[in-house]
Amino acid sequence: MSDQPAALPDEGSGRPAARPTPVIRPRPTVDETRATKAILIGTAVAFLALFVVLPLIAVFAEAFRRGVDHYLESFADPDTQAAIRLTLTVAAIAVPLNLVFGICAAWAIAKFEFPGKSLLTTLIDLPFSVSPVVSGLVFVLLFGAQGYFGKWLAAHDLQIVFAVPGIVLATVFVTFPFVARELIPLMQEQGTAEEEAALTLGASGLRTFLTVTLPNTKWALLYGVLLCNARAMGEFGAVSVVSGHVRGLTNTMPLHVEILYNEYNFVAAFAVASLLAGLALVTLLAKSVLEWRYGDALGRTRLY
């Protein structure tokens, strides 16, 4: 720790300063002392380590507590495999649906002017702020046996809640805004000039979209899909309400984690959890790479 007096400018950080020339007057203090900096950095690192990194480490530590063999054995259970398959299936349906929606919504909102636009944007954001439990509940109220469409569904032998369609619906609901929110700010920033140029040069609307808009937004799109996918595979609350928890049929990975945890099978619970944590890490890694390399090509104002 240095005990530099506060009045002295701190070299080596902040803006690239000119070489120290004879100082007549101390430069304005626009930086903290080294000690302050060290304390601030230390606090931030400690805070993140305690609240974020430690839980992540705990997942892997518990998963490998009884060795790699035990860890791998956890995945031999057919119910676990079924849960993994179901989670992949649900994500494979939910993510493309929200992708198509996100592109359409972004195109309409970012490239055109119409009244009620901010209301529409707010409504798209709504699923973010709704409690996952409420997201699940609404589908039970609609499609449950006692719900509005319950009688009709039963008469036609269709099952939605406590079956895969209900899980898909709940997942689509909670991941609804992800792609749209990545695209809208970016496409607004980019404006419509390039598309108009393409159209003037004779390109068709679809071609314009594919050759102009899509390349301009591909990284934001990828980023949105990544987040959407991570959330789709990891959703717990909403899916828990509509799932029915039948192993091998309606059990997704996060629900299976809970079940294994409740069966004293902690190694297996954390093993499945470690897959989900691995997915989260891959998502973060991809996101970081995208941001470092294509920072400009991502929407600047993004709030999840």
């Binding site: 909102i109 944007t121 607004q188 003037t200």
Partner: peptide, 13 residues
């Protein structure tokens, strides 16, 4: 959220 007004230039369609 996060909307900025955008200028729509109209060119002959």
């Amino acid at each position: 959220m996060l909307l900025r007004p955008i200028a729509v230039r109209s060119t002959p369609a």
